[in-house]
Design a binder for these strands. Structure first.
Length: 554
RNA sequence: GCGCCAAUAGCUCAGCUGGAUAGAGCAUCGGAUUUCUAAUCCGAGGGUCAGGGGUUCGAGUCCCUUUUGGCGUGCCA
């Protein structure tokens, strides 16, 4: 927010002085507070353009700034940095916006339509912790984008057709027949073997009883497939709901197929002249577009491979008019990107609109030992278990607070124990603490009614200015998150703000009956902090409690 | 073999389009409550940013290379 002002001032000075510049320079907040509030490298970046030594150029620019009231001091340091220290009133003047309940919103996104596809786990079992990571990531990115003026749309693609779901049906069938006294000697290795399959079979049996035994195999499996898909879908929806995640749309592959999209894709590709027949199969010449080998579209037996509906699905994203298409995928899918891109290119779609974000795997540990997860064997830790044990808030924070592209180790048993030490409590505590102080303030008859904004100048402590600065940078953080698709930055930002508050709280008394003016200014300040913590938590899908229940110490 | 991703403190991880003395939490050790919630705060120790080159005023960040690990390289999805 302030950064824009500094940039504008810098460019105005450069123009007045007749110096050449481009937008390659930066304005940033130096780590070292001795270097002022903001710092720019413009003299170093443009010295060659202006044929001057960086120091000399910096001198001239700084001199022009010294006449501006908003700047307390402008100094040159290092190889040619220009360090700005703002007058305190600049911060104070901006403070009222920090109180707005929609502080940070903007029109930055220009109503661009964004489709965010995430989770999209196979409908063959309960969601696992990997989906929890995807949920936390996708949903928070969605909320932030929406907050700053994009028009995002959450979508879950359901692979409810094809091989995997046939195996699902067969797995249910085995358990069903078991219920009817049949002994299954050896459960096939490729079948789904989790307890939930038994539950589904039992549920189905409770409804249909033994009548399915008299169906033809085809009809029976069809019934089992649809029943299981339904049950699992409900399980997934409920876990996601418990995690605070909703989708605008669930796109069914079955439906896509029924609508004839498969035939469409096949004919488009053949019209584009990029298919051929070999070994009785139909191939897509994806190598023409950078893929490492050609891909089969239709097998000799007339069934299609998964990539056809996948292409069809992606075409709908274009046809529905999205400006930005974001796929959030697991790392085991990166091999498939080139063939998808190849298809888009072959069909003349703008592949630059499609962005793929890869979330790296989670190494799940239990008591320090690696847990191998597999849906088939049923050895998985489900998202629901995670929510039950760690709590929605902590779980969301935990999975959000790391950049998408790094692997992460998650010790499940540790997380259960350590939940009280989770940073999310630190943040929530800051929020609750402020609420509590405000209740106290009310009792002390110190309200913000008739508050004179001019008195804010009494907030002149170093920590106070730092806090205001931090809050003013919130708008920049949100933009950065949306642009770089990195919602983990919100977790870090919120943690930092909470930390700054806790330090401030310990260093300075907020309510002091002897200094009512200052007290009221401080109440104003912490109200702003509370506001922004609340907004951040809401964007992360984490609750903002007004009080914390004390847990007994161990 | 080829391709993608990663490697930062004992552990888990940050590090904004390249910026000045690389940070936080946990763990370890030592302190703080006549005071608005101690789920807090203050302090200490702890680093060859995997190794080596390069680009430039300046590299944890960009490029090349080596090493290590994960994943991919199906007519599974």
């Amino acid at each position: 927010m302030l950064r824009d002002k500094i940039r504008a001032d810098i460019e105005q000075v450069m123009k007045t002085l007749g110096f050449i510049f481009n937008d390659r320079y930066t304005v940033e907040e130096p780590k070292n507070p001795e270097h002022g509030d903001f710092s720019t490298n413009i003299a170093m970046v443009t010295c060659k353009l202006n044929k001057m030594r960086p120091i000399d150029l910096a001198e001239k620019i700084a001199a022009a700034f010294s006449r501006k009231r908003d700047y307390k001091s402008v100094e040159i340091a290092g190889a040619g940095f220009i360090n700005f220290t703002m007058s305190n009133y600049v911060f104070h003047q901006l403070m009222p916006v920090l109180m707005y309940s929609d502080y940070g919103t903007s029109t930055y996104g220009e109503k661009k339509k964004v489709i965010l596809e995430f989770v999209s786990a196979n409908p063959t079992g309960p969601l696992n912790v990997v989906s929890a990571r995807a949920s936390a990531y996708g949903d928070t990115l969605f909320r932030v984008m929406q907050y700053i003026g994009f028009e995002p749309f959450r979508e879950y693609y359901v692979n409810d057709a094809g091989n995997q779901v046939d195996i699902l049906a067969e797995s249910v069938e085995l358990r069903y027949r078991e219920l009817h006294g049949e002994k299954i000697r050896e459960f096939p290795a490729e079948a789904y073997n989790g307890e939930y399959i038994k539950d589904i079979a039992a549920h189905l049996n409770a409804i249909d009883g033994s009548k399915l035994l008299h169906y033809s195999e085809k009809d029976r499996l069809e019934r089992m497939k649809n029943f299981a898909l339904d049950e699992i879908h409900n399980m997934q929806v409920s876990s996601l709901d418990n995690f605070g995640v909703d989708f605008e749309n669930w796109m069914s592959e079955q439906k896509l197929r029924q609508e004839g999209s498969i035939e469409e894709v096949l004919s488009y590709l053949s019209e584009a002249n990029v298919t051929y027949e070999k070994d009785d199969a139909i191939w897509f010449e994806s190598t023409k577009f950078g893929d490492e080998k050609d891909r089969v579209l239709m097998r000799a037996d007339g069934t299609i491979t998964y990539i056809v509906p996948d292409i069809a699905y992606h075409l709908t994203k274009y046809q529905r008019g999205f400006d930005i298409i974001i796929d959030v995928l697991g790392p085991d899918h990166h091999g498939y990107v080139p063939r998808l891109m190849a298809a888009l290119e072959a069909l003349n779609y703008d592949k630059d609109k499609l962005e793929i974000v890869f979330l790296q795997h989670i190494n799940l540990l239990s008591n320090g030992e690696m847990v191998k997860m597999s849906k088939r064997t049923g050895r998985i830790v489900t998202m629901q278990e995670l929510i039950d044990d760690v709590g929605k808030d902590a779980a969301r924070y935990f999975f959000l607070d790391r950049k998408p592209n790094s692997h992460l180790n998650f010790d499940f048993s540790l997380a259960k124990k350590a939940s009280a030490e989770n940073p999310v409590y630190y943040i929530q505590y800051a929020h609750a603490r402020i609420c509590s102080v405000m209740v106290k303030a009310k009792k002390a008859k110190m309200s913000l009614d008739n508050f004179d904004l001019k008195s804010l100048k009494k907030l002149d402590k170093k920590e106070e200015i730092k806090l205001i600065k931090k809050m003013l940078s919130f708008t920049d953080v949100l933009i950065l998150i949306a642009d770089k698709r990195e919602p983990h930055r919100l977790a870090s930002y919120t943690l930092e703000l909470a930390g700054m508050f806790h330090k401030y709280y310990n260093a300075h008394k907020i309510i002091n009956p002897r200094y009512e003016d200052i007290s009221r200014c401080r109440i104003f300040l912490i109200s702003c902090i509370k506001n922004i913590l609340g907004i951040s938590l809401e964007l992360m899908g984490i609750s903002a409690p007004t009080s914390m229940k004390k847990k007994s110490k161990k």
